[in-house]
């Protein structure tokens, strides 16, 4: 079962069972829905940005352990960060999922990712990559909306 241990790291199962930042935010926080039409996973991101800082983020939705844990880890990673920092985290994460070095992140990349590095094993299961990236694409959209 070594292959599966790479996918279902303890941190992932923990975030799946006890997701962080669940809930909703009232306007003026923006609300963006993300859908995976193939498998029906859905994520709603509520994002509050004040003076260029992600002051709060909340999530609802349903889906598999990877999509839900990824969204929970993401919320913890960007909350309190500046918008630029949040976009940088998104970039680093997406590189991890689909960049040229997708198979083997370097130690310094892993350090930058912190807990998010637990999702590195997803790359070995190509059909699950879209589960892991759903929340992040939705967050990008939400950030775009707050800057409009």
């Amino acid at each position: 079962m070594s292959g599966l241990d790479d996918l279902y790291r303890e941190i992932i199962l923990d975030h799946y069972r006890t997701p962080r930042n669940r809930g909703e935010l009232d306007p003026p926080a923006v609300r963006v829905e993300g859908f995976n039409p193939l498998c029906g996973d859905e994520i709603v991101v509520y994002l509050a940005v004040t003076d260029g800082v992600v002051t709060d983020i909340k999530l609802t939705g349903q889906g598999c352990s990877i999509s839900q844990a990824s969204s929970s880890l993401m919320s913890a990673a960007v909350k309190g960060k500046s918008v630029d920092e949040a976009r940088a985290v998104i970039g680093t994460f997406k590189d991890l999922m689909m960049g040229p070095s997708a198979t083997e992140p370097t130690p310094s990349e892993l350090r930058k990712l912190g807990e998010l590095a637990a999702l590195a094993g997803v790359v070995k299961f190509p059909v699950r990559i879209k589960c892991a990236t759903l929340a992040w694409n939705t967050l990008t959209q939400a950030l775009d909306e707050t800057s409009n």
Binding site: M1, G3, L4, L7, Y8, C39, D41, G63, C64, S65, I66, Q68, F125, R128, C131
Partner: peptide, 12 residues
Amino acid sequence: VHPHDISQVLDQ
């Protein structure tokens, strides 16, 4: 246990 996760473990 989400159906995707069921199927993933079953594949193993």
